[in-house]
Write a protein that binds this DNA or RNA. Structure first.
Lengths: 220, 220
DNA sequence: ATAAAGACTTAAGGAAAACTTAAATTGATC
DNA sequence: GATCAATTTAAGTTTTCCTTAAGTCTTTAT
């Protein structure tokens, strides 16, 4: 998915660019509102991540300029503090979602995915595989309509598997997703999480292990 | 997956329609080339199964007519006899695969699935030989649509054989592939793997041994 | 027909990968 | 700082797989 990132701060911009790239987004990063507007007309984007407090224009003006140019893609706003008056204003102007800094990269990715999915008419911001339903925005998982409680790692693991059910996900890929940038794990932590997740899902057949390779979510 | 079946023979048409329906395809069956062309424009199909020897148009003209109308979906041709000059002509005209009658329904289904998958860009990383489908990405092997479980060595062995079916693979080459860099084997390990693989494939004829040379995969 | 060579079959021992469990560590919350 | 949940480590267990080896069967050559 192609994203347009509008962020003037170098550190934060780089962090977001890398973080989203690692999560399978294709990110175009611009630093000014003016650049954002011209870039948005050069190529189609699936969504925009807009930081408030840009140097040349403030966020709300960038947003309304985008909309005036006929750009209808979803816009997620990053805001410094949880100031309801401002966020309400933004949502009125046509922002689709917002997050307060500092934010979690996984959550940002999840919300973006949900926005794009909704935009495409795929309504449910949910991944559904067989009797498993995973709500990426609310961090909820239902199995046979029963809510189950997953830890963060378990949730990430399940989400990764559910994004392409039936496909084998290599250990390496899964470790990248589950443990993110955090210190490299040199133990069997992944196996432990798989074990616990299987237990919580109730059916140990669902997550199949491909010896020497990784794991797969059985899609039936 | 939606298929357009072009077949004038009633018996055969019905057999194919039922056979493919049972295998989760949605089949639209037409009996003439003219009907095929109008039907192909009415709705989008994932693939076409085209029998040669239709009453109103011969197969190659139907095929080129389809392509002229901008229909890009994969086309699998059913042909009466294995006449290489004709099949070459068809492949030139834009057919994607062909099978000689009488054919095995499982193999037809397998080939269609492979075609559609390849069309969708979902990594044509699948080898299909007769009723055997080997998915190189997901480390999965199906025989007659039934999943079978192969160990790493068995999988490598089968993959090697399937990359050029019908050709003889020397013992040495196979050992290189199966045992990779690992220590040279000075036992009959390869034979044991061949034996186990044959057992798992269910048909011991598939893998033929060429005494003093090696093995060959031949299943039809 | 018989011997020799090559291939097949089977079973056992050991190694590698994955599973399971529990304890130690971390991190957040009050 | 105490507590609780989440996470990682570590160690023991189980499972699966691979190799070896020995015996049997098949083919080929004499």
């Amino acid at each position: 998915m192609d994203l347009l990132l509008i962020e003037d701060d170098g550190m934060l911009g780089q962090a977001v660019e890398i973080g989203l790239s690692e999560r399978q987004f294709s990110v175009q990063w611009v630093r000014t509102g003016a650049a954002a507007i011209s870039e948005s007309q050069r190529a189609p984007y699936d969504a925009v991540v807009l930081d408030l407090g840009l140097p040349d224009l403030d966020g709300s003006r960038v947003l309304s300029a985008l909309r005036k140019k006929g750009q209808l893609m979803p816009v997620l706003v990053l805001t410094a503090r949880d100031d309801s008056s401002e966020t309400v204003k933004l949502l009125d102007l046509g922002a689709d979602d917002y997050m307060v800094k500092p934010f979690d990269m996984n959550e940002l990715a999840a919300r973006l995915r949900a926005l794009v999915r909704r935009q495409r008419g795929q309504a449910s911001a949910e991944l559904v595989v067989g009797p498993i339903r995973l709500d990426e925005v609310n961090f909820q998982v239902l199995v046979d309509e029963q809510r189950i409680n997953l830890s963060r790692r378990e949730f990430e693991l399940l989400r990764a598997l559910m994004t392409s059910p039936g496909r084998v996900h290599s250990r390496d890929k899964l470790e990248q997703v589950v443990f993110r940038n955090e210190q490299q794990v040199e133990s069997n932590a992944l196996e432990v999480h798989v074990h616990n997740l299987r237990k919580k899902l109730g059916n140990k057949e669902w997550i199949q292990t491909i010896r020497g390779v990784g794991y797969r979510l059985a899609c039936k």
